[in-house]
């Protein structure tokens, strides 16, 4: 896709055509889905969080739209790390866009096994999903609720990983900033936030049943953006490593806002529902428009606001 130099950047030695990242969990269970996002303007993609073994996820309904937001509980469906990495390898035959391999486990030893698999793959980064909110009935509270667990896992993975290590953090804890600091101190090369908010619940009053089969689901979409902007602002002020900011970004102006909160790159996920798969191209055009109107040379010139 032809894109303006104004949007390009270098992120951890990888050239990116634009600052938009397809986050884990959206359009990413297969090489085709990730290629479709790239074809439509994504600058970097994340493969669906993979576990050691395949998971079918929760039965439907798995999503529900509410005013200004989506609630979802897919249940970490994925084909397992080996097949997931095959998808990344196939993706790389078609595209040189960088890929983040996201992994999920519940203990250090499984995270290490996943890391070893990713080491031998064509992925460019490894992301530790420490914050899936939708499997707590199975696995308990997400790991990123505990700064000790986050530190232990990041430290262990960092010592084993050949790739830069990202930690994906939850907004649903009292001490996001403290946990972000712990993750950085343990060696995380970048932080990814926020995962979905809540979780929340929607009841179908006609059926007198929860709409989501898992009862509760993580909330994403425009309504959560102020929470994401606030946490990215606070975390980026507290750590030195780059922050990939996400949560409710739907327009070019939202991306600029996220960069002004201190993010280096911006995730675009649920916006696909609101604006179509070509939301990436639309947002890129909107960013350019903002840059031009404000006489800014490059998107990389937009820095965290001082306040």
């Amino acid at each position: 896709m032809e894109q303006s130099k104004k949007l390009s950047s270098v992120f951890m030695n990888h050239a990116l055509a634009n600052p938009l990242v397809l986050p884990a969990g959206v359009m990413d269970v297969s090489h085709g889905s990730m290629l479709f996002a790239v074809e439509n303007g994504a600058g970097m993609v994340t493969m669906k969080s993979c576990t050691l073994e395949p998971r079918s996820g929760h039965p439907g309904p798995v999503v529900c739209e509410i005013e200004g937001a989506m609630i979802n509980a897919m249940g970490l469906c994925n084909p397992g790390i080996d097949r997931g990495l095959e998808e990344i390898a196939t993706f790389k035959k078609f595209s040189d866009v960088p890929v983040i391999a996201s992994v999920f486990a519940t203990n250090v030893s499984d995270f290490l096994k996943l890391t070893q698999s990713v080491n031998d793959s064509s992925a460019d980064f490894i992301e530790l999903n420490l914050s899936c909110p939708n499997v707590s009935s199975e696995f308990g509270t997400p790991l990123s609720a505990s700064s000790e667990m986050v530190a232990e896992i990041v430290r262990a993975v960092k010592s084993e990983s050949k790739l830069p290590v990202f930690a994906k953090l939850s907004p649903n804890t009292h001490d996001v900033i403290g946990i972000a600091r712990e993750a950085e101190a343990a060696g995380a090369d970048a932080l990814v936030l926020i995962n979905t908010v809540g979780p929340g619940m929607v009841i179908d009053i006609d059926a007198r049943r929860p709409v989501i089969s898992a009862k509760f689901g993580g909330i994403s979409g425009p309504a959560v953006k102020p929470i994401a902007v606030k946490l990215v602002y606070q975390v980026s002020g507290a750590v030195q490593v780059p922050v990939i900011g996400m949560g409710g970004i739907t327009s070019g102006r939202d991306v600029i806002e996220m960069l002004m909160a201190g993010a280096s790159l911006a995730g675009v996920g649920t916006a696909i529902y609101y604006r179509g798969i070509d939301v990436f191209a639309k947002i890129n055009a909107e960013i350019e428009e903002f840059l031009e109107m404000n006489g800014i040379e490059s998107v990389t010139d937009i820095k965290r606001i001082e306040c």
């Binding site: 297969s30 999503v63 739209e65 529902y273």
Partner: peptide, 9 residues
Amino acid sequence: KCAVGICGQ
């Protein structure tokens, strides 16, 4: 799964 174009399934 989702039927609204976000899960990629």
